[in-house]
């Protein structure tokens, strides 16, 4: 399984890559939305995307909306991974096309439980 990780924090990318690698994923970490979209132009072979909300330039929420418009990517499971903890933010993310939402801070077990909710065997 391949996972795209979009987070502008090097430390957070490293944490997410560590957890998902251990769970058997092939991970591709990128630092912003533009890089993610450029990558998906030529490679749509991803089952999972973890998206930070607060990204430079295009926001994570805008990225989710953009990802949901890309053809042949309908099966991509999208989870927001974010410090945004307002109920309205969670609602907004789901309404925009995110499938799941995890608030920072979290631990490995919490993240893997969320993946199970997305129907991903870990």
């Amino acid at each position: 399984m391949r996972a795209l990780i979009i987070d502008d924090s090097r430390a957070m990318r490293s944490i997410l890559v560590g957890i998902l690698d251990e769970a058997g994923f092939d991970t591709v970490p990128v630092a912003d939305a533009e890089e993610a979209l450029a990558l998906l132009d030529s490679d749509r072979n991803f089952e999972l995307a973890l998206v930070d909300w607060n990204l430079p330039a295009m926001s994570g929420l805008e990225l989710v909306v953009a990802l949901r418009k890309i053809p042949n990517l309908e099966d991509l499971r999208l989870m927001m991974v974010t410090t945004e903890t307002e109920l309205e933010r969670v609602r907004e993310a789901l309404d925009s096309g995110a499938d799941e939402y995890i608030m920072k801070p979290f631990d490995k077990e919490m993240l893997l439980e969320k993946l199970t909710l997305l129907g991903i065997d870990v």
């Binding site: 969670v90 789901l94 499938d99 799941e100 939402y101 608030m103 979290f106 077990e109 439980e113 909710l117």
Partner: peptide
């Protein structure tokens, strides 16, 4: 944050 589906939250 643990195990609760976001749509249920």
């Amino acid at each position: 944050n643990r195990g609760l589906p976001a749509p249920y939250l």
